[in-house]
Amino acid sequence: MLIERRWKKWVFFYIPLTIFVLGTLFPFYWMLVTAIRPDAELYRSWRAVNNAPFWTVQPTLEHFRDLMEKTTFPRWLWNTFFIAVISTGISLACGLLAGYALARLKFPMAGALGTSIFVTYLVPPTLLFIPLADIIRDLQLGNTPWALILTYPTFLIPFSTWLLMGYFKTIPKELEECARIDGATRFGAMTRIIFPIAVPGILSAGIFAFTLSWNEFIYALIFLSSPERKTVPVGVVSELIRGDIYFWGQLMAGALLGSIPVALVYSFFVEYYVTGLTGSVKG
């Protein structure tokens, strides 16, 4: 159909797309170059001759080694992972049940409750961290992973509930009606028929929740204090900067390593994300 001239395709398509790709990916390339560059090369005046900042002539893994040996980085990775997995699990469980109830069951106040769960978006973490810190202290949860495992669901549940509710609404009602006639209870129809069908939506919500927890910063910054308890983002900020001195090599190495797990999870993500958003069931 829509036929274009070749030069037009270059001007309106290839060139802009290339700029987008370069602009998007350059910071990551820069992370990588910095992480494998020896300090001597790193801190050389920008007017120095032979300064070739876009690559390095003597790649080294010393920053990675320092990161692993001189800091508790592996611990941070594990902490982040542990907290992200558990809080994602809790949020998905809550979101599944609540999303199902809001999408399918008739009960008084259903609309109001749905809206109020949605409206908790109104209250981002940065609005709550001061009183929440007090509550965490009262519950004796300060400086434990549970402080984060219990608070992360506050922003994960509303969004998983809404995403899954939308997904459930695309599943024909007759499927569970049929299951109930076939001999399943309401609960059984939900777990045996609806949940298995909603797997793409669940995966999409789960991946999203996982990365949001991996990403979270302010609660982790305030609720955790000892170095070995920290998550990657907080550890990098607080342990790899001494006063005014930034250990750029290690920082970038840590940034790379801390990004890889989410990037891996996401490599499956694009397709599910799209299906989760537009979700549909055939059959």
Partner: peptide, 14 residues
């Protein structure tokens, strides 16, 4: 999608 998924703190350091 990379910029969106990589933890903000880490990419902001870059």
């Amino acid at each position: 999608l990379l910029p969106f998924i990589v933890p903000t703190v880490l990419s902001t350091f870059a």
